[in-house]
């Protein structure tokens, strides 16, 4: 089973992706499932709308889509209430945070109540990384070290320039998974497979910013052993989502 661990539904000033658009891309690339997150204003500020959109997509296509919620930590107490609603009422098994779009630094105290509530609710926490100065891999590592009971995903595994932090520091963080979208080429993924470990790698596309087929082609170029490829392309994501109750 191939699972795209990171895709989006919604709109930005640059692009719109509907559920149908995403399903077409998934079908074209023969990808079974996708984790979907809000995008644009629904990621930045109108979180409730975004979370409702994710829940609706998941309800309409339970065999294809798993929705992650988002809350902007600047909503403070309201963010905690909305996160609780998104998890307990809407059934979204993950939290997506985007420090750049939501306006906070990953290791800012602002985010701690949201992270603590997400851990209490038992959901996985996906954080965009790779964009200085707000969203750096080592900032996520600080946060993850503080909450060893939490499960974190480093989106884009540090991106292009801050990938360097990954092989140097992430081997010691066993509660952080690495998501491969927008990592600029397959060699970084290949190196992380050995330095960080195949069991912590998650294939993702960031569709519609990148293309699912292109991102899948990138992983395919590594010609991994079948069991390792199966882990990276879906096995790890399946286990991680299962551990937070996604299939209940």
């Amino acid at each position: 089973m191939i699972i795209d661990a990171h895709a989006h539904i919604g709109s930005t000033p640059y692009v719109t992706q509907t559920v149908e658009d995403l399903l077409r891309e998934l079908d074209a690339a023969a990808v079974d499932r996708a984790v979907v997150c809000p995008m644009g204003a629904e990621l930045a500020v109108r979180n409730r709308d975004g979370n409702d959109r994710m829940a609706a997509a998941m309800r309409a296509h339970p065999d294809r889509l798993t929705g992650f919620a988002t809350v902007n930590p600047w909503w403070e107490a309201e963010a905690l209430t909305e996160l609780e609603r998104a998890v307990t009422q809407l059934g979204l098994p993950g939290l997506k945070l985007h420090p750049v779009l939501q306006g906070f630094q990953i290791d800012d105290d602002l985010v701690l109540p949201v992270v603590e509530r997400a851990i209490e609710l038992g959901v996985v926490i996906y954080v965009h990384t790779g964009t200085p100065v707000l969203a750096l891999p080592l900032q996520l590592l600080e946060l993850a070290s503080r909450y060893p009971e939490g499960k974190f995903i480093a989106g884009h595994m540090g991106g292009a320039d801050f990938y360097v932090d990954v092989p140097l520091s992430f081997p010691r963080a066993d509660n952080v998974w690495l998501e491969t979208s927008l990592s600029p080429h397959a060699a970084y993924v290949e190196e992380a497979l050995t330095t960080v470990g195949a069991e912590r790698m998650l294939f993702g596309s960031d569709s519609p910013t990148s293309r699912i087929a292109s991102e899948l082609f990138k992983i395919g170029l590594l010609e991994l052993a079948p069991e390792v490829e199966a882990q990276v392309l879906g096995g790890n994501a399946h286990a991680l989502l299962e551990s937070v109750g996604a299939w209940r």
Binding site: P184, H185, A186, A187, Y188, E190, R211, A213, S214, F217, K218, L221, L222
Partner: peptide, 21 residues
């Protein structure tokens, strides 16, 4: 492509990325 950064496979990936558009 940035070859040889990204290893031997990277040239094919960067071309495919254009073709997939």
């Amino acid at each position: 492509s940035d070859m040889p950064f990204g290893g031997h496979s990277n040239v094919r990936f960067q071309i495919q990325k254009i073709r997939d558009l």
